[in-house]
Design a protein around this nucleic acid. Sequence first.
DNA 1: CACTATTGTGAGCAATTACTCAGGTCTTGC
DNA 2: GCAAGACCTGAGTAATTGCTCACAATAGTG
Lengths: 231, 231
Amino acid sequence: MTTGRRGLQPRKQPRQVRAELTRQRILTAAAHIFAEYGYAAGTTNRIAERARISIGSLYQYYPNKDAILAELLFRHLDAGGDAIRSRQDEDEPDSLEEIIRGFARPVIANHLDDPQLLRVMMEHGPRSPELLEKIARHERERVAYTQELLERHPEVRVEDTYVAARLVVSTVELVVHQLIAAPDSIDTERLENELVAMITSYLTAAPGGSGPVDRPHHEGRAPGGPGARPS
Amino acid sequence: MTTGRRGLQPRKQPRQVRAELTRQRILTAAAHIFAEYGYAAGTTNRIAERARISIGSLYQYYPNKDAILAELLFRHLDAGGDAIRSRQDEDEPDSLEEIIRGFARPVIANHLDDPQLLRVMMEHGPRSPELLEKIARHERERVAYTQELLERHPEVRVEDTYVAARLVVSTVELVVHQLIAAPDSIDTERLENELVAMITSYLTAAPGGSGPVDRPHHEGRAPGGPGARPS
DNA sequence: CACTATTGTGAGCAATTACTCAGGTCTTGC
DNA sequence: GCAAGACCTGAGTAATTGCTCACAATAGTG
């Protein structure tokens, strides 16, 4: 199938405008093809055909098929990261609900373009070590950032902010992904609201309890503060 | 790649014990191979090799590669459905938390066997119309059942039980899947607890509020006036 | 214009894959 | 013991795929 690892970096730097244009055509064509056919059936020849260039040209810019998907994924991750980071730079003192909403909204927006493509990327992505590393780093950053926010915010009451952060990040990403890509798609706005409500109520609920009701049993939360250690 | 649709039903009924045994070998071998190599790289020859039978025998039982994955998926879905349904038959009057836990636990248990395989199945599955239908039906059943439970339980306070049910089902399935398969896996028990806590607090929280705390400000989540435009 | 560097072309190769088939070996029923 | 079916075998085939390479076209420079 795919020839072995040969690096994922693009093959050459374009020196003329024409080249940069071709590059872009390849990328958008690949996005469509992968989204429509999946990774395995999305052949390089098909991509070239869709981009209206020859297969040879394609391989002048990308050393192999993986590299195309890689670039697609990089761009997506970068876009997502930027959106969230830009939000961070704004005025900070939001309510917790607004903060969570600030997580959910960019993720939703980022998935509206082409849910199918995202799906393909996450599916096949982790087979290449470089992609795996990139994704893992991205996720770790998000978790760390989220954890920091949780720890800083007084409203938050969870035992282990690390676990909570992972739960939150995963939930937002996955649920948005699934429910937007679903055939019977849920209204975007409602999805955002419900997701935010769920996470916010989780974070602010009394630890070990289920909702506002007092729950006498259960091992109490370690009073040592928020610095609960990840397992 | 795969030859076109030719049905997914097994090719023949085994009449001797020997045959049933071979069948089982194929299935377990396929499970391992798919989990290890993914669907595309998990070739039928490799499966046959691992099962220590010839490739010809394999094709006596399954008309094509898809059919093997299909059977694997069917079995998984059936197992999951059974686990939940068996729980339903027990004494009903549980607390909401216990009900949600009754959802989460079988899902977790079902994923502990081989997360990678599950991943492959969900990834590739939806390409075959028959599989797609099976999965969709399974999901619809789960959502319907969940919605019914939500409506019956007095503690639940959500606007739209259908949306809530979908959210709950997706969240449990996806988050469990992701966090168990993750390289830095979270402790199973803690995962269950946090997940249950999140969902329970979401379901029991007063609509429009976030958690037990009284929240004077903020526009409610009523459809009338959230200033929430998607970016 | 001439010369060079950059970019584009597409037939075709090597490798891989799902799957077949002609013929073997084992089980069963009598 | 012996036929008839059930089961198994594995070399081979047709099709597909990622990718190369020898060459053609275009753009930049003097």
